[in-house]
Write a protein that binds this DNA or RNA. Structure first.
Lengths: 161, 161
DNA sequence: CCCATGTCAGTCTAACTGATATTT
DNA sequence: CAAATATCAGTTCGACTGACATGG
């Protein structure tokens, strides 16, 4: 473990609420409710919906690329992809330059379902952000994304076996 | 669905990064790494370690109380509790006023393991917060806790069947 | 009787590791 | 041969629902 996080003034005293603990608690509340609503209204799991939204903005990704972006194994992502393809929400075509790679794109129905999922996400975000100013919202989002980037950078730097 | 999230200026346009998506992505990165390190160094799962830290600050909770605080079912929490008890990290005693309720407390060994887990959490938080000022850290934590409270409040208000 | 608690059983989700085939 | 990709199989973890006993 060659990590040198630098000196921090926040230690792990008992009774204190940790940032990692608070994030985990919030995410579990979000995912639980999202899972219930996506299952009930759209018959989708959370990973399935997530893959739809990623593919919407990054059309043509392969299964392996999707898995890397999502920080899961290709095997885990493949189950998600297979379910979406079986329902006709995505379609896969061989890449021109490489016969083995299957590029994945949303179908029209896939886009329609993704938009309906957006409304569920809108509702939950609305609940989370009641009374929060746009500036505060932006700062919050920026903090989350920054933490994610730094964590992944630190982990990758640490991975040199 | 009697929710009225109020007007927000942030809609779900394609290509935009949603707060909920960013939080989910960050939490998955955290949990994945935490899971690997807790398993390797302490032979603990993430829910087991979480339960230890909750019991450390709130000693004497019953299984049902722990489950409600963690937003999982009593059955799910019971597996966690059983594993910790089998390893001697917690002990359970009948409540004085109610024979059926088992109050749960950390053992000395449980406290020792929890402290070693703290160091792992410290390292990961250090990576996430490289170069972040204490003020920014506090604001970030406050935003997360506020979002969690408002989300749960909104969901409870919505639960009136 | 009602309700909260604890617990047993079975199920399902969503990840994992291992192994194998294909393609460049 | 090496590396990346896809995919089959088996496994584990962590949640769920249902059923049921017990104590207040």
């Amino acid at each position: 473990m060659a990590v040198t996080p630098g000196r921090r003034r926040v230690s792990s005293e008992e009774g204190e609420v940790r940032l990692i603990y608070a994030i985990g608690r919030l995410d579990r509340a979000i995912r639980r409710e999202l899972r219930l609503r996506l299952a009930k209204e759209l018959d989708l799991t959370v990973p399935q919906f997530t893959a739809l939204t990623v593919l919407r903005s990054r059309s043509g990704l392969s299964n392996a690329q999707l898995a890397r972006r999502s920080l899961v194994t290709p095997q885990a992502m493949q189950e998600v992809i297979a379910a979406l393809e079986a329902r006709g929400l995505i379609e896969r075509t061989q890449a021109a330059h490489h016969q083995r790679i299957l590029q994945t794109k949303l179908t029209a129905e896939g886009r329609r379902i993704a938009r309906r999922g957006d409304r569920i996400v809108d509702e939950l975000e609305g609940l989370m952000l009641v009374g929060v100013s746009p500036a505060e919202h932006r700062r919050f989002l920026a903090s989350v994304r920054r933490a994610d980037e730094f964590l992944r950078a630190g982990l990758n730097a640490n991975q040199e076996h």
